[in-house]
Structure formats: structure tokens, C-alpha cells
Design a binder for these strands. Sequence first.
DNA 1: AAAAGATGCAACCGCTCCCCG
DNA 2: CCGGGGAGCGGTTGCATCTTT
Length: 328
Amino acid sequence: MKRPRGGRGGGGEQPAVRKGPWAPEEDEVLMRHVQEHGPREWSSIRSKGLLPRTGKSCRLRWVNKLRPDLKTGCKFSAEEERVVIDLQAQFGNKWAKIATYLHGRTDNDVKNFWSTRQKRLARLLRAPMPRRRPGGKQSSSGASSSHAHELPAPKNPCLDMIPFQEPMTTHHVGESSGSSSQDPNTTNHRAVAHFPGAYGLPPPPPPPTPLPIMHAGAEQGSSSAAPATALLLPYGGDAGYPVAGGVDPLVFVDPAASPEPLEVVPPGPFFRLDDDYVHAGRAMHRDVCGVRFDDLPPEAFDFFELPNLPAWPPPFPPPPPPSQHDQL
DNA sequence: AAAAGATGCAACCGCTCCCCG
DNA sequence: CCGGGGAGCGGTTGCATCTTT
């Protein structure tokens, strides 16, 4: 796989401590230690001379790579993405806390996912018209601010009608999609208003005070971002639509043309990664108008992010207790 | 086919928290 | 109550791989 890195590993002033990529033999030693002592006493690994690694490094390796219940090599599913987005809005950058809600994901995974998403967002906010080349992945040049205005006319009306047409608003299913003055209470709590269903919980009480409407750009502090429109309708929950497996598919509506849903993407299994679904979904949305969560312009998600709500306790239940694996 | 740019991810660092003596 | 050590967390870095031109 990856070669050992020269720049950072190899140690320096403390040659006794090894840094950088882990060798399979080191993993074996670490695994053995965990089997015997459990996932603790990390510092004793070095003090006993088992490995020339710091306790922190050992713990990190175990948590991020060696834990038996990890989903390794799998991208975040659409539902996992939503969980992260919802919980980030609620908890902030408490990655470890968020990760406890996602089985098989580590705080590092969540952190990396979010960081990637933020970078994408930052790029897209500088580039007013995200474009997707037919048959290709999201064009990296499409995100280039220096070329954004030179891009050709949209070829896919479904995708290109979504952003940057009107001032940003969000709508719920069950709300009037033609109304431009929506209730911020419900608008800003789309995520939590729907998500708890995945846990079988009643929706949280409404927040005590009206909340401001979220605008793209606020997150990045970018005042130069072009006005954007993306009406994301959670397709389920409030309106009584079926929400299979705790997932409400996304529906995109052209606010100017029709309140009718343009496309409904079937949800994936909750917390179950299915590469076939992922790839099929990707292939689909390039040829048709289907849109998968992963491929949405990130600013679309940001409409749903919550402002600080000090007086409103988190509606999420505490995560399930650590599994046997975690205790070992 | 090659170069350039974008993306994903593993791992380190510094700080904070918590427990124990 | 206080200090020290270990553990945990969030931020950041840098390389490998992938995608686009």
C-alpha cells in the first residue's frame, strides 16, 4: 500500500520512539496486547518494551485501524452522511461523540469526512456554478474559482437548476413549498425533526425562540458567495411518506417551476454499506437526474445546520453502550 | 501517456480531562 | 486540595491515490 513516509516518521531527537506507518508485525503485537489486557494500558506497551511506540500512538492505531468492528475502506453511506451532518449541527465538532452514533466509524473518520466536506464547500462557494461533467466525477476544475465563470452552459437541467438561482430557503414536506417566508423553527430543525425517527424517538420539542434563517456562506464567513437556491425536501416523516429503514430520501424541487418532486432516490439500508448501491447510485445520477447525497453541492447541506441552541437539549439518545469488542 | 490538481486518509501534535496517590 | 501521569479529543499535516486535462 503506502510507502513509509520520509518526512514525518523515522523519529528525530528521540530515536527510541518509532513514528510513521505501522508495520504488520507491530499491528500483531498491538493486537496481542489488547487481547491480553484490553484496550487500555497503552503506555505500558512501550514501557514493557513490546513496541517502540508511544501509548498515544498505540491507542490511535487500535482505535482507528485495528478495532475489529470497523468499517474499513467504505465510504460514508448517505445515511451516515446525514447523521454526521445532523449531529455536527447539534454537537459541534465533537467528533468522538458523533462517532459513537455511527457503528464502525471512528472520530478520525468523521473528522476527515467533515473536513473533506468543508473543503468542498469552500471551493464551491468560490465557484458559483458547480458543474458535473457527463460521465465523470465532480469536476475538480469546476470548483476552481478562476474558471468558474467560464464554464459552459448546463447540460443537465436537473442538477443545474438546483443551486444559485434564488435566495436560499429550505422547505419541509408538508410545508408550503411556494412560501418564501417559512417558519424558521421548523426549517432549521429539519434534521432533528426527522432524524430521531431513526432511533425510534419522538421528535424533540420546538426550540424556545425563533431561529434565523441559515444562509450559505455564513459557515465560511464568505460574503462574496453568490446567492444560492437549493430546496431540499425531506421526503418522509412530516408528510407521512414512507421512510424506509429510517431514511428519508431527498427530493429536489425547482421552486420557480413546480412543487413536484423531481427525483426520489431510494434510500440505502440504514447504517449498512452497500457498494453496489453506492456505485449504482453514482452511475445513475450521471445519466438521469437522480441525485445522491454524496454528490450534492455541500452548501445544500448547510441550510440545515443549526445555530447554537443553548437552551435546547440534544434530542438524541445516548449512544448504545460499548460493544463487547470495545471492552474486549 | 504524462502532468497537474484534487481527494482521501493515516498519523502526529498539543491541549484538556480524569483518575489516583 | 494538589500535582503527576495516562488517556482522550480535536486540529493539522503530508503522502498516496485518483481524476482530469
